Every structure is written in structure tokens, then in C-alpha cells.
Simulated assay, not measured.
Amino acid sequence: MDGFSFFIYAFLSIFVIVSPLSGVVTFISLTSNMTLHEKNEIAKKAVILACIIAVFFAVLGNKLLGVFGINVDSLRIAGGILLFTIAFDMMHAKISAESITEEEINRSQEREDIWIFPIALPLLTGPGTISAVIVLMGTAPGFQEKIMILAAIVLTFAISLLMFLFSRRIHRFIGYNGMLVFTRLMGLFLAALAVDLVATGIKNIFPMLGKLV
């Protein structure tokens, strides 16, 4: 895989997991009583924090795994299973419990720090995103590829910021049904990515299975 292809793979993997357009509906619900300026400030702070969290785990995630004696293939399998549960909910156009529950949305309406929880974490950067960036960095063949992964993370959250800043316009233009269709499509791609992660992890942990396939 050449450099550009690797960047596209990393970007699409992260973008599908973050799925910012799917989060627009939740973001609108959480900021419905705010002015445009207040909403935009929430969007900026939330996305910046989410990006910092993702970059932090991308850079230091594998060292943290080493502290606990966990190898990247074990995380690949666990992350793949987690992502598949998220994808299953997305394909049924539901809010994933991994991201945020309906009860958390209702409780968040009364809080002032919603840009931290639940928007930055876990709506944008949840366990699925954290697992994915750690796995990508752990399997990157060289320094150049690691830089590409970091660039893919920044690009994903830059697009997320634009979507949140223009969330109300996007919602009016695409409509609720359009967002449901997009969510289901992203769920399908995410399910395929999850299966690939689990299959690769199993083959690496149990090499004999790889020879039989």
C-alpha cells in the first residue's frame, strides 16, 4: 500500500467511526435552546477536545497497552467487536449506547459543560475511536505512516467542526430521513471494518488459522 492509499485508508477508517454527520442530530438536540454563537462555541471547544484526546491515544496508546501487557492484536479483536455493536445500532438508525444514551442526552440539557460530556467524549471520541487510532498506530509500518494517521485524525475533526458549525443548515438541507440513510450506510461500512479487524487479530494471534484460511 503506497503512502496516499494508506492515508485514505486511515482517514476513511477514522471518519466512519467518528461519523460526524450521524452526531449532528444529537448535537442539535443538545444545543437547541442556545443562540448561534453559543452553539458554535460549544462546537469549537468540543471538537478541539475530542481531537486532542484522539491524538493523545494515537501517540501514547501503544505505550499504555505495554504497561498492561496487552498486544495490539488483542485490542484489534476487542475493538472490532465493540465497533460491530456500534455498527449494528447504526444500521438500525439507533443511537449507540457506546456513544451516548437517550437518558444522558436528557440529563445533559441542564448542564453547562456539555462540550466535554457528552459531545467531545463519548459522542465524537468514544471507546471505538480510541481503539481504532491505537490499532492504526500500532500497525503503521513506519514514521511516515504514523504522521499520516495523525493528519487523518486532524482532517476528520476539521470536517466534524464544519458539520457542527453548519449543523442546523445541514439538518434542514438533508432532512432527518437523509441522515438516517447516511447513518445506515456508515453502519454498513463500519461493520465491514469491524469484521476485518477481528479477522486480522485472530489470524495474528493464532497463525495456524491464517494458514488454514
Rank of each mutant, 00 (worst) to 15 (best):
A78D: 09
E145C: 01
N204G: 06
A194F: 11
M179N: 08
G128M: 00
L36M: 06
G138W: 05
F206Q: 05
T200F: 11
E38G: 05
D196P: 04
K146A: 13
A199H: 07
G23I: 04
L185T: 07
R168C: 03
D196T: 10
I81R: 04
K94M: 06
E102T: 12
L123V: 14
I28R: 00
G210A: 09
S13N: 06
V135G: 00
L188M: 09
P127N: 04
L60D: 11
I14E: 00
L30T: 13
F6I: 11
H92Q: 15
L188A: 12
I8D: 05
A132N: 09
V181N: 00
E38R: 06
S160H: 07
S5K: 09
K63D: 14
L212R: 12
F173E: 10
G69S: 04
L193V: 15
L155K: 03
A191T: 01
M179Y: 02
L121T: 15
I14Y: 02
F11D: 08
G142F: 11
S131Q: 02
R111A: 11
I52T: 13
S5W: 07
M137I: 12
A194E: 10
A151Q: 12
R76I: 09
M137K: 06
S108A: 14
V55S: 10
G61Q: 07
F143T: 15
V47R: 03
I159N: 01
V198D: 02
L193N: 11
I147K: 00
V154W: 06
Y176N: 14
I174R: 01
F6D: 03
M186P: 11
L12D: 05
P118N: 03
L212V: 15
L165I: 15
L209Y: 15
F164Q: 09
S131G: 03
E38D: 13
S29T: 11
G79N: 02
V47W: 08
M208E: 14
S32G: 00
I52V: 14
A54R: 09
N40E: 12
I14T: 04
L188D: 05
Y176W: 03
T31E: 01
G3W: 00
L193G: 12
L161T: 04
R107H: 10
I14L: 03
L136N: 05
R168T: 13
A158Y: 14
L193C: 06
G61S: 07
R172W: 11
I14H: 04
A58C: 15
K45E: 12
R76Q: 15
L162C: 10
I114N: 00
F11K: 07
G79K: 03
L12M: 12
E145Y: 04
E103H: 05
S167K: 00
K203Y: 15
